[in-house]
Design a protein around this nucleic acid. Structure first.
Length: 943
RNA sequence: CCCCGGGUGGCGGAAUGGUAGACGCAGCGGACUUAAAAUCCGUUGGCUGUAAGGCCGUGUGGGUUCGAGUCCCACCCCGGGGACCA
């Protein structure tokens, strides 16, 4: 029996035995509840795993192991996200084919995961690039297509010139390619999209039902970006001075109707217009607009149809403060306006060209500096009939809302900046608070709104300068104006989302082929089920072209197909982005060998949802949103029993390592945000202290600060690595790697071994049958209490993902047991209690230090594995002590602590507290006003 | 600018509104050793005091409470995310 932790002597042996016994094969034994424990689907990088990656696998492994011991059927699988740009780029760099490369890398991952003893069921493993898997990815694509959720459209997309492919919106960060940092360009290419926008509302709503970190939920809500507002129509005029009353607008409408009806206005329509006229006239007077005589303004009807455009706003309560409107440079109305107001044409065209040339990165870089140009047209504010100039500016985005806005510079900072720059009016229409005015008067604010920065944007105030709407709150004003607009057909309430459809086409080789054939007549056909999968052709050369076409397009054997009727067609040559493949892998794990269908319904009904999903927070809005979307589609199709795939989600913290930097040399410049120049540890040795410094940085190959699992296991042992990573910090916070900390874990495991080996002689396998018959008292009771308290703490802590305090409780347990056994010649009761303690200790340690636990288990003469044993249960009556230490406070200040019977009632506690000489010092000569008693905790005497 | 986290000894961290600093690391003192490593025992928030003890102490300032690391308000700092989304 080992009396200290000697990993080299037994860890490898146990891993081999677990493998031989197929210990972690998923069981579906009837009568046991299920638990699905899943880690994020990793892309197997060529750099291999670092101890940083283990921080996600180890804690979830502890959960999986405990759940199994508690009697659950546990599904704990692992596979590899093999398709996609990272793999393909790596293969190109190494001048090799991605398929064998990925196989090699995945094998390394598996070896490393096995090395630290993760209890995966490898029999269920697959790679997303396996044809047996991607066949079903294609099958689901077809399902989406059939349900109207996959479509091809010619669209302006984010094009990464380095990766030579289109990217999804989620893969573009601040205008740069998320993967390689290259500024993305815009390109018009036919692309495949999934219609995730159809599910926007459900993707928000169902977040309420799942146990995820609030931060991730917030990020998803934010990304989906729901906003409620009103979309309404404005008419375009070409004369600034002319006021157009509502009656004018009605007259124009009448003319329009008459034109369509062949010169004669139908009676019913005329009547309707008359009533509207009456209503509108009253309204116009109320809001203070000039009641203009009915004249036929030809502004609206020059050369045919009147020009109109629609805007979306969440602040219709500020509509009386509109002083200009802005169209996005790409807005189709712009052409129409300059056709009719040609004098602004050249300037407008020039600006459009400039805007187009800018990349998203440039556009976002100068968000402060607004630019734009007047179009020559005016918009008529439907609320008050006022005409305001129409500008184009690139701060208005074509792909959000209607691509046009009403600008209220008094209450919107962006509009304000623009108004200041182009000397446009600012008309306050929301009464600012006293706090905002900060001393100056309301008159001064209204007279010189441009002197008041930042602008007043709060919704917690009332309307002013808004005619009959003055004094209404945001809610009231929005409701009243919304009703008015809807009543008069000017606009309607609407909900907008920022979320756009998910672009899945990649013009690259290494991805799942899209099962579509384009026939000669331009129609698209899905590849029939019995022809799936569409195999990715095995080719020598697969480098991407930069003309926007996929490398598959050059492979004529792949492209040219003939259908059953002998008709010629061309295969779709784009492949699916990697996120498609990882949007359903958790379903395949439930039934990975099925070659009839993607999964057997019963298997998925049994295992889904995932009970505990663990991975990094960086996938907050990509994988996690896409997987939720697919699950909902599959739910709607009746193929999965759950609306949400991941019931509980946990994000682990990163592992940071000390990383050397040096100060920049003369002439060297640092990128923004950089503190110094990254150097290797070797370089650092040769540099004097005052020229270098160390920072904690995320472990990564590029930083040269990686500690591999092999190194850690070699120097300290796998169980030490596991215990260290569990103990060093809470699960979700970043940790700083330290060799000293690893030594602490080694010492602790040695103390566990020492305790067990020192007292193995007293171990009685049959303790369970006898222990309750021998009354525990004194030391034996103390043993039993320590044991049951440890069981309770360990169970609850693992359940709530508090692995650091679980390990801490184990340390306390071992320390307590060691203290209790000092110089002990145990009697029968004590021997039984020690037996219980030894066995509980080993089993409680099993999820975190499984090798050591099994080694000790065997040394105790037990057969099999701790994995197959039952998780210890605690007896609540044995978790409480009979005396407690209570705090005695005077006026809330701690003055004494006293030992007292745990069962002491309030009166006894009070009496004991008041008797304390230390308390008397403070209470003598004082009047006791009140005594607060918290049973079992404290007494507070108020004098 | 907005939205999330988070600021506790020399360090990592613990603490259902109820004894702040559990547990570990590092340090210090001691035992064992020819010596060192390893191990074991003791000790370790600051100030003050011979001691018993006292005072201060969880980013800053206020508040609620018998009692605040924990709840509320304002602010400062650090980390992450989103950023012209109308």
């Amino acid at each position: 029996m080992p009396d200290r932790y000697e990993p080299a002597s037994f860890e490898a042996k146990w891993r081999a035995r677990w493998a031989k016994a197929e210990l972690f094969l998923t069981r579906e034994e009837p009568g046991r509840p299920k638990f699905y424990c899943l880690d994020f689907f990793p892309y197997p990088s060529g750099a291999g795993l670092s101890v940083g990656h283990c921080r996600n696998y180890i804690p979830n492994d502890v959960v999986a192991r405990m759940k199994y011991m508690q009697g659950f059927n546990v599904l704990h699988p692992m596979g590899f996200d093999a398709f996609g740009l990272p793999a393909e780029n790596e293969a190109i760099k190494n001048k090799t084919h991605p398929a064998p490369m990925i196989d090699r890398y995945a094998a390394t991952y598996r070896r490393q995961m096995d090395l630290v003893g993760i209890s995966y069921d490898w029999s269920r493993s697959f790679k997303s690039s396996d044809p047996t898997y991607y066949k079903w990815t294609q099958w689901i694509f077809k399902l989406l297509y059939q349900r109207g959720l996959a479509y091809r459209a010619n669209a302006e997309v984010n094009w990464c010139p380095k990766d030579k492919t289109a990217l999804a919106n989620e893969e573009v960060v601040a205008g740069l390619c998320e993967r390689c940092g290259t500024p993305v360009e815009k390109r018009q290419i036919p692309q495949w999209f999934f219609k995730i926008t159809d599910y926007a509302q459900r993707l928000i709503d169902d977040l309420d039902d799942i146990d995820w970190p609030e931060g991730i939920k917030a990020m998803q809500r934010n990304w989906i970006g729901r906003s409620e507002g009103i979309e309404f129509e404005l008419k375009v005029a070409f004369d600034e001075s002319g006021q157009t009353s509502f009656t004018d607008q009605l007259a124009a409408l009448e003319a329009e109707v008459a034109e369509e009806a062949g010169g004669q206005v139908p009676g019913a329509v005329a009547e309707k217009i008359a009533t509207l006229e009456a209503k509108l006239g009253i309204h116009a007077q109320k809001v203070g607009a000039d009641p203009m005589p009915i004249t036929r303004s030809d502004d609206f009807a020059i050369k045919g149809k009147p020009l109109t455009f629609r805007v979306f706003t969440t602040r219709v309560d500020t509509i009386f403060g509109v002083t200009f409107c802005v169209l996005s440079p790409e807005h189709p109305l712009v052409d129409e306006i300059i056709k009719r107001a040609p004098e602004q044409g050249p300037a407008v065209r020039e600006y459009q060209v400039q805007a187009r040339r800018k990349t998203d990165a440039e556009r976002t870089a100068d968000t402060k500096d607004k630019s734009g140009v007047f179009t020559g047209g005016y918009a008529v504010n439907p609320a008050n009939g006022k005409r305001v100039p129409i500008y184009i500016a690139d701060y208005v985005l074509m792909n959000y809302g209607t691509g046009a806005i009403m600008a209220v510079p008094a209450h919107d900072p962006r509009d304000f900046d623009f108004a200041v720059k182009y000397d446009l009016d600012v008309v306050p229409v929301i009464k600012p608070t006293e706090e905002y005015l900060a001393g100056t008067s309301l008159e001064d604010y209204c007279a010189n709104p441009k002197n008041h920065v930042p602008v007043f944007t709060s919704k917690d105030s009332v309307m002013m300068n808004s005619g009959e709407y003055d004094g209404l709150t945001y809610e009231e004003g929005t409701a009243a104006l919304g009703q008015w607009m809807e009543g008069h057909g000017i606009g309607e309430r609407k909900i907008q989302y920022k979320l756009r459809d998910w672009l899945i086409s990649r013009q690259r080789y290494w991805g799942c082929p899209i099962p579509v054939i384009h026939s000669k007549d331009g129609e698209m056909h899905l590849v029939p089920d019995d022809c799936l999968p569409v195999y990715l052709p095995d080719v020598e050369s697969y480098e991407p072209a930069d003309d926007g076409s996929s490398p598959l397009a050059k492979i004529s054997d792949f492209v040219n197909v003939t259908d059953l009727d002998g008709k010629l067609g061309r295969r779709e040559t784009d492949t699916m982005g990697g996120f498609a493949c990882s949007s359903w892998y958790f379903l395949r794990f439930c039934d990975p060998y099925n070659d009839e269908k993607p999964w057997d319904q019963e298997r998925v009904n049994y295992w889904m949802p995932v009970d505990c999903y663990v991975g990094g927070a960086e996938h907050a809005v990509m994988h996690l949103l896409y997987a939720r979307f697919w699950t909902k589609v599959l739910f709607d199709a009746g193929l999965v029993p759950v609306k949400e795939p991941f019931q509980k989600l946990k994000n682990q913290g990163q592992v940071l390592a000390m990383t050397p930097y040096r100060h920049p040399k003369q002439g060297e410049t640092l990128a923004p945000g950089e503190e110094g120049v990254l150097i290797s540890f070797k370089e650092a040795e040769g540099i004097p202290d005052d020229q270098k410094f160390y920072r904690w940085a995320r472990m990564s190959k590029s930083k040269g600060n990686v500690v591999t699992p092999e190194e850690a296991v070699e120097s300290y042992g796998a169980d030490a690595l596991r215990v260290y990573e569990l103990f060093v910090a809470p699960f979700d916070t970043d940790v700083q790697w330290s060799n000293e900390g690893m030594n602490g874990a080694v010492r602790f495991l040695s103390r566990v071994c020492k305790f067990v080996s020192d007292h193995a002689a007293h171990y009685d396998v049959g303790w369970k049958a006898e222990i309750d018959a021998v009354p525990a008292e004194g030391r034996s009771l103390a043993f039993r209490r320590a044991t049951h308290q440890a069981i309770q703490k360990a169970t609850e802590d693992i359940e709530r993902f508090a692995f650091n305090t679980y390990i801490s409780a184990m340390m306390i347990y071992v320390n307590t047991l060691s203290d209790l056994t000092k110089g002990l010649q145990p009697n029968r009761a004590e021997k039984l209690a020690i037996s219980e303690a030894i066995e509980s200790l080993v089993l409680l340690m099993a999820p975190s230090a499984p090798h050591t636990a099994d080694e000790l288990w065997e040394s105790l003469g037990r057969l099999g594995f701790t994995y197959g044993e039952s998780w210890p249960k605690f007896d609540p009556s044995l978790t409480v002590d009979d005396t407690v230490t209570i705090a005695v406070q005077v006026n809330g200040k701690l003055r004494d602590t006293i030992e007292i019977e745990a069962t002491a009632d309030r009166a006894a506690m009070e009496a004991a507290a008041l008797e304390s000489p230390k308390v008397k010092v403070y209470t003598d000569g004082q009047t006791i006003r009140k005594v607060i008693i918290v049973p079992g905790k404290l007494v507070n005497v108020v004098v």
